[in-house]
């Protein structure tokens, strides 16, 4: 029988579960949890943190230094994702104005912004946390594992403990027991972004980066990437994109992406790239 180990805790504003299979030093899971909590401590906007300090500085000045290495890594990844998605993904908040008007001087560790803005890494922060936990577990010798931050951020380490890829089914929000899509993961991350959720009707809206308008169409976006943060950024971008932008994104990105729009309780597939086993 394959031995299973788990570490479950609350971080990043949700329930984080780290599952490892096969030989595993219990210390490895504790270290992985510590990595998640470090990312949470750096990126949270709900209590004092380096991100809150940065946001406070940017609320009154056009530039601010970034000393925290995790926050700096998050900012670097944000810039990468902004380029990849033509700005559809943006981790900044700016009421009623385009959000992309900021730059990062990596060498100097400094953010420059046109006007006041604030960072909220949201789902990308969870992806970064899972990436950090996975790196820690791999360093600890774990070869098979499945990590989750809530149900929207999943990361697979290696193969399923019984062999083969990890078979993941994204549940249909309005048809219990059925899947929007089934995807196989091996050393990959999966992110789900949605404007609809039968269990949580009061979710915070996803905002478009160009005008700050909330995405109101009933959509679910799914993205698979090698890293958790990358998957998070792509699924968010897919959700915020117009149909034309969604097509461009799908053509440019080599990973797997899916988007569903709902008509009533029926899901309509909007964009598919790569090889997917799809059950709509």
């Amino acid at each position: 029988m394959t031995e299973g180990h788990a570490e479950c805790f609350v971080a990043m504003g949700t329930r984080v579960e780290l599952h490892a299979f096969g030989p595993c030093d219990p210390q490895a899971l504790r270290l992985a949890r510590h990595e998640v909590e470090r990312v949470d401590d750096a990126l949270t906007i709900h209590r004092p943190s380096p991100t809150v300090t940065l946001n406070e500085a940017l609320s009154v000045a056009s530039g601010a230094a970034v000393d925290d290495p995790i926050l700096l890594a998050a900012l670097i990844e944000t810039r990468v994702l902004m380029r990849m998605t033509d700005g559809l993904f943006d981790a900044t908040v700016r009421q009623g104005a385009p959000r992309g008007a900021w730059d990062l001087d990596i060498a100097r560790g400094r953010v420059e912004a046109e006007g006041p803005l604030a960072f909220d890494f949201g789902g990308m922060g969870k992806g970064l946390a899972l990436d950090a936990a996975a790196a820690s577990l791999r360093a600890g010798g774990v070869q098979s594992g499945l990590l989750s931050a809530g149900e929207s951020s999943i990361l697979a380490i290696g193969q399923h403990p019984l062999g083969g890829p990890w078979p993941i089914g994204v549940p249909h929000p309005f048809a219990p027991g059925t899947f929007l899509a089934e995807l196989d993961l091996v050393d990959e991350a999966l992110s789900v972004s949605a404007t609809v959720d039968a269990a949580a009707p009061c979710r915070q809206p996803t905002l478009r980066s160009d005008n700050g308008a909330p995405v109101t169409a009933p959509l679910t976006a799914v993205a698979v990437a090698a890293q958790g943060a990358r998957a998070e950024g792509l699924s968010t971008a897919l959700l915020a994109a117009s149909p034309e932008e969604r097509d461009r994104l799908a053509q440019r990105h080599s990973g797997r992406m899916l988007c569903f729009r709902y008509e009533g309780r029926d899901a309509i597939t909007l964009a598919i790239t790569g090889e997917l086993a799809c059950n709509v």
Partner: peptide
Amino acid sequence: RRDVAKGRRRTIPIGGATWFPE
């Protein structure tokens, strides 16, 4: 986890949107 313990491999139903309680 139960499936793995029983030597069974099937689709894992996960990936719904997450509620952010904070």
